[in-house]
Design a protein around this nucleic acid. Structure first.
Lengths: 151, 151
DNA sequence: ATGGGTGCAAAGAGTTTGCAACTAC
DNA sequence: GTAGTTGCAAACTCTTTGCACCCAT
C-alpha cells in the first residue's frame, strides 16, 4: 500500500497517513484522525476547528485534552495530512482535503467553509515575483452563505 | 464631497478619509493616519502591524496607547480607508492601498508583504457559488523573499 | 524498559473592553 | 457643556509549552 496515494477516494485517510509516517498509534490520535476521516467518508467537506475536533474526539474518548488535539493537528499539518485554512479572524480551521487542488468559499457571517474548484489557478509572471521564490497561491472567496442570507 | 472617492492618486489620504467621514480630528488619529500616509507618499507599499503603527505614532507622540491604535485601525477599516491583510499567523496587517485592486505576495519566513497585480482576477461561475452571495476574492501568493532566500 | 505521548495548568501572543479623565466640537 | 476619545489595566480568545505520569513499541 503506497503511502503517497492521492486518489479522491480510497484508503488515503488521515489515519493511514499517520501510520505511514511511522508514528505511535495512540487512542487519542486515532479518534482525532477519525473526526476527519468519518466526515470525509460521508462525502462532506471537512474544515474543523480545534474545538470541533475536540468535541468529536470526546464523543468516543471523553478524556482527550485540547492540548493533545492541538499537538496532533500541528503534527498532521507538518506531515502534510491536513492543511490549515486561514480565517480572517476566529479559530483556525483544518482541512482534510489535501489531495485535490481547490480553493475556499467562506461565509463572512458564520465562517462556514465550502470547497470550490477554479478552472485554472492564478499564477504570477516572473517579472511580477519581486525576486520571491513563489511556492503557492491561496484563493479565498468571501460572501454570505444561504443560511445567513435567509436569517 | 462624496465619501466614497477612490482615485489612484491625489489627495486621497487616510487622514482625508477620516476628515471626510466627519470624525473628530485628535492628535492621536492624525499621527496614526500619518504613519500610513507618509510611507505612501514615499511610493512604498504599506502593510503595517498594530505594533509598527504604534512605533511610528510614538515617534511624534510618545504617549499614544496601543489601545487607541487598535481602536483607530478598526475604525479606519470599517470606514474603508484601510484593508486588513490576513496573515497565516502572527499579527494582523493593515493596508492603506484600498484604491486599486491588487493581490499580495507574502514571505513565509519574515511575513513581508508586497503588492502584486493580476491581469484578471479569479471569479466563480454561478453554479459554483453554492448559493453564496459572493462579495469578494482574496488572492495570496506565498513564498520566500530575496532577503530570506539569501539568509 | 524507555522514549514518545498525554493531560493539566500556566504562560503566551494578539486583540478587545470597561471605565474615569480629558478634549474637540 | 457634552458627547466622543483617550489611556490604563484587566479580560478575552486562541494556541503553545513545561512537566510529571503513562503506555505503545
Amino acid at each position: 500500500m503506497p503511502p503517497t496515494t492521492a486518489a479522491t477516494d480510497g484508503p488515503d485517510t488521515v489515519e493511514d497517513r499517520l501510520r505511514a509516517a511511522g508514528w505511535r498509534m495512540t487512542v487519542q490520535r486515532r479518534v482525532i484522525a477519525e473526526a476527519f476521516d468519518q466526515r470525509r467518508r460521508d462525502g462532506r467537506d471537512v474544515h474543523l476547528t480545534a474545538e470541533q475536533v475536540l468535541a468529536a474526539a470526546r464523543a468516543t474518548l471523553p478524556d482527550v485534552s485540547l492540548a493533545t488535539v492541538y499537538n496532533t493537528l500541528n503534527d498532521l499539518v507538518e506531515l502534510g495530512a491536513l492543511a490549515e485554512v486561514s480565517p480572517d479572524d476566529g479559530p483556525r480551521r483544518y482541512d482534510a482535503n489535501v489531495a485535490d487542488d481547490h480553493q475556499h468559499l467562506v461565509c463572512v457571517d458564520c465562517s462556514r467553509v465550502v470547497d470550490v474548484h477554479l478552472p485554472t489557478r492564478p499564477t504570477l509572471g516572473p517579472d511580477a515575483r519581486h525576486g520571491f521564490d513563489v511556492a503557492g497561491v491561496e484563493v479565498t472567496f468571501r460572501g454570505r452563505c444561504p443560511d445567513c442570507r435567509a436569517a
